[in-house]
Design a binder for these strands. Structure first.
Lengths: 245, 245
DNA sequence: CTTATGCTGTCAATCAAGTGTCATGTGCGT
DNA sequence: ACGCACATGACACTTGATTGACAGCATAAG
């Protein structure tokens, strides 16, 4: 029956592929836009039955499945995924509307690996996508980010600089995480609000400054170098000179 | 967890293999999904007679056998397993419908190592699977979890900290067990509900807090360090710094 | 059968940590 | 030196975690 598990034929050297099955166009676009920004290859599908075809011919590395779908429900798609050997272990994230169903997704033994209740924040969903991919393909998504003497571990949610442990609040942690994913790259305050906070519109851009300040205070001890670079008029970046010298 | 599986030859260095013989598709899937999540390699079979063929050619490390089966009954399969030298000691768990003591007795008389009455909770079944595998292949599944001055023995269900015995309720025991299996790793409340309470539990996430609180109270005596770390906004983890320093 | 006992899940009050805004200070770039 | 962008400390506020009390159950004991 399911003897030899051939290595997932998709993506050996390419970026992880994500299939988004969501009928609400706006949401689908929002997701694929953000996933692509993270470097994933995204395919979008609207109907449950189409998704099944797609999943049969070229299984991706992860599926984001809406609960309510035209054609075949997300629930049913997921169940069938679990029934096939080829997709038995394929990571699945379910999107559910707020309400009764929400709590039952976990209860129902559908076999989704994770579920997210709408409305959700983009950073939250991204975190879960990465967490699942990390579990499935550890070589693609690192659990540890290292830059210079900074080590950030997502699994244990620990940070250390030059060996010593540093405690950060959730926001500062995510902020640093985001900066460390692309060391040297400059992010505008708007971009940071989008990808770290998620509900950009409500928050003053100056708030980013404050958090960067707090992050610096936590990171720098004594005569240590400031790992965050301010780019006047543009934004912030992790100082990539930290990595080399 | 779901790494790439090598060939299936009767498990010398690979993950333990489990054969699920169950005709009810939903249940069969639920089981295989959860078993795979625990790192086992699972094969599913629906009919009793097919199971016999399978068991003859490539015996797994453990069999989960439904009582009622098309083809040959689970009872009969079990009896025949016991008759053959090659499978005499193969661990067998029988699934029986709710009810009669008589059946249980017969099941055990036939040589099943354990039986579980439907409906059962997933964590419960998983615990029994692990217990049996541990007995059969002690090198594969550790009976004792040790982290710092904490020693948790699954066989005797005993826990000790720095030598002294500590009594825990079932839930707190499983909770600690789960945390100790991956020291340092942060589990969200939702994940803990899934793997400690089991699917089909519609339980408030705050309940996890309460149990963690109780666990702490039981664990910490005097000035001892709290072995459980709260990660605000994320969940809980066993404090892995306990292990080193 | 009734009464203890132990365990669990929920709730509400309390406590602590983290967050966003503002006012003010500083320093960079020209 | 000037102006503007950024830095920072203080503050009120929000959110999340802890804790103790309680009620429902199941089980064991009387």
């Amino acid at each position: 029956m399911n003897e030899i598990r051939a290595t997932q034929r998709s993506s050996t050297n390419t970026a992880p592929r994500v299939l988004v099955v969501e009928d609400e166009a706006a949401l689908s676009l929002l997701l694929s836009y953000n996933l692509e920004a993270e470097g994933f290859i995204v395919e979008r599908i609207e109907r449950g039955d189409e998704a099944e075809l797609k999943l049969e011919e070229t299984p991706p590395d992860l599926v984001i499945l809406d609960w309510m779908l035209p054609g075949v429900s997300g629930l049913e798609v997921c169940r069938r995924l679990r029934a096939r050997d080829a997709t038995r272990t394929l990571p699945v994230i379910m999107l559910t509307a707020r309400g009764e169903e929400a709590e039952r997704v976990r209860g129902l033994a559908v076999g989704a690996d994770d579920y997210v209740v709408k409305p959700f924040s983009i950073p939250e969903l991204m975190a879960r996508v990465k967490a699942l991919l990390r579990r499935a393909k550890p070589e693609r998504i690192a659990a540890q980010l290292v830059a210079g003497d900074l080590e950030l571990d997502r699994e244990t949610r620990r940070l250390r600089r030059a060996g010593r442990a540093i405690h950060l609040g959730p926001t500062e942690f995510r902020l640093l995480e985001h900066l460390m994913e692309k060391p040297g790259r400059v992010f505008s305050r708007g971009q940071l609000l989008d990808s770290v906070w998620g509900m950009s519109a409500e928050i003053d851009e100056r708030t980013v400054d404050v958090h960067v300040g707090r992050l610096r205070k936590a990171l720098v001890r004594g005569r240590e170098k400031d790992p965050i670079r301010t780019v006047r008029g543009a934004g912030y970046s992790l100082d990539e000179t930290l990595i080399r010298g």
